[in-house]
Design a protein around this nucleic acid. Sequence first.
DNA 1: CCGAGGATCATCT
DNA 2: GATGATCCTCGGT
Length: 188
Amino acid sequence: MKLIREFYARPTLTVARDLLGQVLVHRSPQGTCAGRVVETEAYTQNDPACHAYRGKTKRNATMFGQPGQSYIYLIYGIHHCFNVVTAQEDVGEAVLIRALEPLAGVEIMKKRRNQQRDRLLCSGPARLCQALGITTALDGIDLLGDRIFLLSHPRPQKIVTTTRIGISQGKELPYRFYIGDSKYISKK
DNA sequence: CCGAGGATCATCT
DNA sequence: GATGATCCTCGGT
């Protein structure tokens, strides 16, 4: 079953934890790819690492959209990152999907990434975007539609909480979550 | 295994 | 004009 609006319209830290174990699906012209979410990070309104921290801009505008929409941006001029908008409209909070366990469309993903090993296919926010064929062309898309969506699955048992990766501010906040026994985490 | 360095560009100051 | 929610390659150990 597809996750509904009410799932996303809850506190961001709750959504970040509850997204673990759910399955992200992208249906593209090249085929359908899917993976189980094994690592997430929360970005909240009073958090200096959050793109929405200094208010609405052209780049982060979709972060202020309805919960259940995507927020996708380009980083380092090369890589894409995929987020799920959470909480309420106009608040500017989101969850970054940092790693997936590949489930379907694996051959398509390997081709897109020029990477044969399952272990490195979707283990990293930019890697999973490349594998699934997600770009900023899909920024702001509604995840309740049929192009990209999340399917409801049982919650995993072992959830680990740590600080986030790759940021310079808000380093001390325990906003990163991952499935403890997954081998598809981006980093220990 | 590990750390350093470079790629590359839209957005923001 | 500087920067970044990253990744890959390369060289040393």
